[in-house]
């Protein structure tokens, strides 16, 4: 058994080629995996009747929206304790923004809060250019989620029907928030 072994010239030539091929393979593999399994989470379209809580609200509206969500938790607790929806006055006495009337509430549009028997708190804005009117619809039981609607025109009439279709028809917009890639990435619409 004999074998002729040719001594190949040393050089980076074929090694470079192998490294390039392996890099190319890795890139192709990675690209394939990304194409097959990647999900575009940053493209959450919001419906035309909705308004994005993070981008499309004014500063005062954002503050009010945040306060409403905090107040909503309190309202749910009070509902569990007393088995009744707390009145606007009771909430104001507790010092809960945005129901309490103070310097803060005045600078954010001096909303006048009232309880609607159909199951919602309505805050009529006195300065629609600062912040629109807000509607906090309570869910039927104490475990649901808060539903906040916004209306920016000055003729903020009391909605009779709290159904989505009726609110949309009356010019209300639902305030929604998404946690998506835009939270950390600059993303102009």
């Amino acid at each position: 058994m004999s074998r002729a072994q040719v001594v190949r010239p040393a050089g980076a030539g074929h090694e470079t080629l192998y490294v390039l091929l392996v890099s190319l393979l890795i890139v192709i593999l990675a690209a394939t995996v990304v194409m097959l399994r990647g999900e575009r989470e940053d493209e959450q379209a919001i419906a035309s009747h909705q308004i994005d809580a993070r981008r499309d609200l004014t500063a005062a509206e954002q503050g009010l929206y945040t306060d409403l969500r905090v107040a909503f938790d309190e309202i749910q607790l009070l509902r569990e304790e007393t088995a009744a929806v707390p009145s606007v006055q009771a909430l104001a006495d507790e010092g809960l923004p945005p129901f309490v009337v103070d310097a803060g509430s005045q600078s954010r549009g001096s909303h006048q809060w009232s309880w609607l028997e159909t199951g919602a708190y309505l805050g009529r804005s006195q300065a629609p250019q600062v912040a629109g009117s807000l509607l906090l619809i309570l869910p039927g039981d104490s475990s649901g989620q808060a539903d906040v609607w916004l209306r920016r025109d000055s003729a903020a009439v009391t909605p009779d029907d709290l159904g989505h279709a009726a609110l949309i028809a009356a010019g209300w917009q639902q305030v929604v928030s998404h946690y998506d890639a835009g939270v950390t990435r600059e993303h102009r619409h």
């Binding site: 058994m1 004999s2 074998r3 002729a4 072994q5 040719v6």
Partner: peptide
């Protein structure tokens, strides 16, 4: 440059 090996031992 060629090495001609006579056996499997190289």
């Amino acid at each position: 440059l060629t090495l001609h090996w006579p056996s499997a031992l190289e």
